[in-house]
Nucleic acid binder design. Sequence first.
DNA 1: TCCCGTTGTGCTACCAATGACACAACGAGA
DNA 2: TCTCGTTGTGTCATTGGTAGCACAACGGGA
Lengths: 231, 231
Amino acid sequence: MEFSTEFDARIGRGDVTLTERDVALLRAIDDHGSINAATATLGRSYSRGQQRIVELEEGFGDLVARKRGGSGGGGSHLTDLARELLNRYDQLSAEFSGIAETEETVLSGQVVDHDGELATVETAAGTVRALVHDDGTDTGARLTLRADAVTLQSPSRSPEGDRTSARNRLEGTVRTVDRGEPVALVTVDVADEVSLAALVTVTSVEKLGLDRGTPVVASFKATATRGVPVE
Amino acid sequence: MEFSTEFDARIGRGDVTLTERDVALLRAIDDHGSINAATATLGRSYSRGQQRIVELEEGFGDLVARKRGGSGGGGSHLTDLARELLNRYDQLSAEFSGIAETEETVLSGQVVDHDGELATVETAAGTVRALVHDDGTDTGARLTLRADAVTLQSPSRSPEGDRTSARNRLEGTVRTVDRGEPVALVTVDVADEVSLAALVTVTSVEKLGLDRGTPVVASFKATATRGVPVE
DNA sequence: TCCCGTTGTGCTACCAATGACACAACGAGA
DNA sequence: TCTCGTTGTGTCATTGGTAGCACAACGGGA
């Protein structure tokens, strides 16, 4: 069954939260130079738009410098704070949509150890360390491993007693290489019936000489793999 | 200024989307064995709850097996599909909240090259490859680098012409080590006035002998650093 | 055959967010 | 002093989602 994963990003402060709708309003003000023109082009009512700005400013501080009267009747422009908020919102959305869109592989396994948030999980592909939130009855867990968190390297150069903080290592062989334009999706067989997806740049594909059958080591940080308890 | 980053996770299919509210309803049905008891304990109306289930099932397929009449009057229980949906939702939430909570560092810089989504950005800390969405007027970009995507390694063992797909490398020295219980937040000075945050396990801190002043190499994948264009 | 608690369905009422509209206040420039 | 387009403020209407309620349908067991 095919799902689409979606999200709403919000930025909160005090008891107001900035939503996508608010961001659109601020952007329109920035574009048109007045609340009036902004609400008009958005097909929204001025009165409500103005009210909303006041509400937001009670939580965040000055966002819109407004002037009435004068030549042209006045106008409004965004404060530096508002611009910072918009940038922050863009970044947040970019990260969320990264998650919503990126391929991921799910590993199920048994929790054999639990130290705070850090769990050791036995999976079909080997034992993996991951962050698992709840720790009440730790029997099993489903780990989700995002393709952009997996780094690939040649087996020749990959010491066992490692000097890196990426301590989850799974050996395998490349199953498929799906070249997008600047990025490629590589799937790696790490056990019978278990394969990982890794998102790497095409230049990395070439540097590592990745092709069907190439032996590789997939490594990923414990702190980058999150899981939820099951059963 | 201190913000809180929030989100709503949703799973869509067709033209219905499963929200957190729906998840709560399904969970309550699973707990109590009937829609009636579920809506009652949630303080919601039966009629609306039942309607909502029908709406969801039009998009997703059978979620709640309902039986009326019989001993006890009947009852309801979740289908396997519903359970799968709930698991999927849990995983998605876990990933989103990981993003919302995790420390991150922002690098601003000039875009010097743009190949599809992959941009090369000159920052104060060095040149970095990252995924940047829009590519209309590529002047500057703000890259956000999540602490859980940064891996640390000792400089001794880190070949220049690398055999790994993590190609962004920044050398620096440890500024602070903030030990949480199983995970530690390490900040690394990589240039004047620029420091990165890395989230690693405490055992990695010990293995690498990280302490204030320790020279380290911070590396991260281009596909794990996302940016938004500015100006 | 009756009893019971559930599902299924339809109606009204309510609430919060929003739009629609009216009108005063403003202030630079003609 | 007048004009003009904007901000600021208030009132009323509309809308979408929900609760509240009533009542029929169901079917296993007493």
